[in-house]
């Protein structure tokens, strides 16, 4: 039998979205094929990695993740700058951990002040990630949006329940949004539609399908991302043709195996490398499912995953 390469015929493509502003703005999306299937379409923009920083010194990071940032963890602006200057971050994600009502419950004003400091320290796109508490995120992200007019911040996660407040504010003050839903194609579509109905420009949306950690629910996220891409591309559903973002580092580094010492887990190998490879392997898996922006923590896993992306796309 002769060999016939069955090629997919796509009915749609992913929108190109530009994040941030100025020279360092980053464009993602634009795929006309499934992830890295360059034999039947294009990926005009390589997937990008955004490095995460916290708005408070983390208490439970394993030594491996903390080590590269030890000198800057209590100064988000310096931390962000280090990510960009030293580790070549394309984008920075500020995780608003301090605002968690079940934790420090820092105020929207405090969070805004931190955002401004970080904005002053870097020129790459800045993503602001709330605590997934619907009311608190609405309050905080609205405030940030208002006070940082025109910066084209990327604000999220925005869910059905708080899309109105955050959406209206982002529209008014010139920011992009992360449309977020818990691992479900219909819910993802619904939030996008809600935002569209609100009048949010569709070229300022990126989708967060919800990210499970490696070995901790990743398979659900993986499959929903594949299904989202199939709906967008094979079925041409224009309500789902958005780039996707995965808040990965946060999930991987909190799991037990990323934290165990060599004494606690002798067969798990070198603790530093283990965490790095767990994060990088998770990243590869998410890339194969269609991730356009990966939020990652360790400079070494970031470096490796960038190299992997180059291998697959150049």
């Amino acid at each position: 039998m002769a060999f016939d390469f069955y090629k997919e015929s796509y009915a749609g493509s992913v929108k190109e979205i530009t994040l941030g502003k100025g020279d360092k703005a980053v464009t993602v999306g634009g795929e006309t094929s499934y992830p890295f299937y360059l034999f039947e379409g294009e990926m005009p923009n390589k997937p990008r990695i955004a490095m995460e920083i916290w708005d408070m010194a983390p208490e439970d990071w394993p030594e491996a993740a903390l080590a590269p940032f030890k000198d800057v963890v209590s100064d988000p602006a310096a931390w962000a700058k280090k990510c960009v200057d030293e580790f070549g971050a394309d984008m920075v994600v500020l995780q608003l951990k301090s605002t968690d009502p079940n934790g420090n419950n820092a105020s929207a004003d405090d969070a805004t002040a931190t955002v401004k400091k970080v904005l002053g320290a870097i020129d790459v796109p800045l993503i602001i990630w709330g605590t997934a508490n619907i009311e608190k995120d609405e309050e905080t992200l609205k405030k940030i949006s208002e006070e940082c007019q025109g910066e084209n911040l990327i604000l999220g996660p925005v869910e059905d329940k708080n899309h109105k407040g955050i959406g209206a504010s982002a529209m008014g003050f010139g920011h992009s949004l992360i449309s977020s839903s818990p691992i479900d194609v219909n819910l993802a579509k619904q939030v996008n539609i809600l935002l569209e109905n609100l009048g949010m420009p569709m070229d300022r949306i990126i989708v967060d399908p919800t990210t499970g950690g490696l070995g901790y629910g990743m398979e659900y996220s993986y499959s929903v991302m594949e299904r989202l891409r199939m709906a967008a591309m094979a079925q041409g559903d224009d309500k789902l043709q958005f780039p996707m973002i995965n808040n990965l580092g946060n999930e991987v580094w909190k799991c037990k195996e990323a934290k165990q010492t060599a004494d606690e887990a002798p067969t798990l190998g070198d603790p530093e490398k283990r965490g790095i490879l767990m994060e990088a392997t998770g990243a590869v898996t998410y890339l194969m499912a269609g991730s356009d922006v990966l939020i990652m923590r360790h400079p070494e896993s970031v470096r490796m995953v960038k190299a992997f992306i180059d291998l697959l796309s150049d």
């Binding site: 195996e257 002798p266 067969t267 190998g269 070198d270 283990r274 490879l277 767990m278 990088a280 392997t281």
Partner: peptide, 12 residues
């Protein structure tokens, strides 16, 4: 095989 390289792959 090393512990740190095979474990992530086994999880995936």
């Amino acid at each position: 095989f090393t512990g740190e390289s095979i474990f992530p792959l086994l999880l995936e």
